[in-house]
Amino acid sequence: MSGQYPPDWEHSPHGSEPGPSGQPAYGQPGYGQQPGYGQPSGQPEPAVPAEQACQVTTGFYLLSRCTSFGVDQCANCGRRVCALHAISGPGGVLCPECFVLAGQHSEPTDRSWALQYRRRYREDAGRELQDPGIWWAFDRYDRYRFAAGRGGGFGGGGAHYYAADYDEDDDSYGIFDS
C-alpha cells in the first residue's frame, strides 16, 4: 500500500504532522510514548506514585489500571483521572464511567468510547451468555459505584462511597440478584 503515496508519505500514512493532540509524529522524538497506551517494551515505566496515578480501569476485555499521571479529579466520584480519561461533562471534569452515568455519550471516534460502552456491554453479555463472570470481572468499586439506582448514580456521593456505604463482606449485591 505504501508504494502509492508520495515520498514524504512513504513511512507514515499521516506524514510528519503532529498527532491529533499535538503528540510527536512517526520518527520524531517521543514517538510511541503516548498516554493511555502505556510505554513500549524495554523502556522504563514512569514512576507515578500510586496515590497520584489515574484510577480509571482501562481495557475492554483485559481489565487493568491506568498508569498515567492523574491530572484532575472526577467531579462526581472523586477519582483521579489522567488527561486521556478526563472528559468535560455536566458539572465539570468527569471520568468515562460518570460521563455515561450523567446520560452523556460519545462517538466511537472518541478515545474513551470503549470504556464508556464497556459497562453496558458487559451487562448485556452477562445476560446473553448467561455468565455472571463477565460482569464480575469488574472489581468491587467498579461494580457498584457506577450502578445507577444502587446508591451510586450521578450526583450522589464521592470516592468515600466505597469505604463508608458498602459492606465489604456482602457479595450478594449485583445485577443478577432478584
Binding site: 484510577q55 480501569t57 476485555y61 453479555a125 451468555l129 455468565d131 469488574f138
Partner: peptide
C-alpha cells in the same frame, strides 16, 4: 454486539480476561 458476543465467548476461555483488574 453480535460480533462482541462472539469475541466474548473466546475471551471467556482466557484466564487473563476472567481475572479481576488489580484491586486498589
Amino acid at each position: 454486539n453480535l460480533i462482541l458476543h462472539v469475541l466474548t465467548e473466546a475471551f471467556r476461555w482466557s484466564p487473563t480476561a476472567r481475572a479481576t483488574a488489580v484491586p486498589r
